[in-house]
Write a protein that binds this DNA or RNA. Sequence first.
DNA 1: GTCTATAAGGGGATAGAC
DNA 2: GTCTATCCCCTTATAGAC
Lengths: 214, 214
Amino acid sequence: MEPSSREKILEVAEARFAQRGFAGVGMREVALAAGLGKSSLFHHFETKADLYVAVIERVIARIEAHVLPALARPGVALALIERAVDALIDALTEHPTTARLLLRSLVEDDAFAAAEPPGLAETEARIHALVGRITTLIAGGVAAGELREIHAPDAVQTLIGATVYHFASGEFGEAVLGGAVFSAEAVARRKREVKELLLHGLASPHAPKERSPS
Amino acid sequence: MEPSSREKILEVAEARFAQRGFAGVGMREVALAAGLGKSSLFHHFETKADLYVAVIERVIARIEAHVLPALARPGVALALIERAVDALIDALTEHPTTARLLLRSLVEDDAFAAAEPPGLAETEARIHALVGRITTLIAGGVAAGELREIHAPDAVQTLIGATVYHFASGEFGEAVLGGAVFSAEAVARRKREVKELLLHGLASPHAPKERSPS
DNA sequence: GTCTATAAGGGGATAGAC
DNA sequence: GTCTATCCCCTTATAGAC
């Protein structure tokens, strides 16, 4: 069961876009790496922007597939946050290019300046919806007295930074860690460290602990 | 006292590189925006990579100018971390393009693939030195029992994510916050939220509090 | 669905006049 | 130190044969 041309194209395009960004990748390069001629690639994707949107769409879908189920199950805010962190990190580490593409899409959306490609707005809306749910979750935890009096949107930004940035940091991150970022040990440790930081950093010191006091 | 050509070039190049990345900016565009012909720009910077390195060098110097003095004064780990956060956020908000360029330089260093331009390695070494000092600082706080048993490099990554990512997040960050990122209020709130999160999230619950217990 | 060929333009970079 | 002119390569994208 060999992959279709379209899948192969999306694979190599994702790797290239993650590495060098939208402007840094040529359609010729993508086509040849996918085993096609340049014009054949334009048969599958009418423009370069269309290809980029298709790549981003896959990334968003990957995030949603992990995080939405984690948020769907009931629980108090802190428990939901912990599950969301686990799910998000699972999504970001399943394909090592996910975080970089996501970070780039956040920071690089003005690459299209004038003519924003159709479909990009829709994928952005899906991220915003996901972010909105987590913001509401945190704000609810504050209102319930479970979390400190924090500013929920700022906490969300920190959460994104602690996960998406971390797994997008590449060689720099490896230099900081002094070792691999995506190894099983490093991923497990990252999950633990982020959850512990949020647990101690967000929880209200006055609220009853959910966890067994040991 | 009008700015020299070189300064003007660096200004417009920084803005362009921050917005669209290394590959997304043309030398012609930079030259015209600086009021020069393209070839005149090549007189000031022999290659595009040289221009990019000069821009990054300025950014690093800006960070160092704020953070190094904050780390130089004595204090316990938590106090030094708080001062470093303040100083770093001051540096990142002094020029709104700083965080984006810094984040891009971390994630985009393979844009040069084969031939890494001379001077880039040196600027990277300066960031690594700064990061190393903060890592050592945190590890020392752990060893002294002042901080929880955290993994210092992971904490540094979180710190970078909470600051550099946040102020690089642009339109997306504004959508998350529901307002400006660089307004005086938003910056002050960010400082407070990050410091409070780290204070509660990193401190050992068993250690005597430095702060007055009110 | 893939190919060759071509269009039309921009990329970085150089040479040499002024 | 800035200019015009030029070089060569790569870019996105299209047309049409197979």
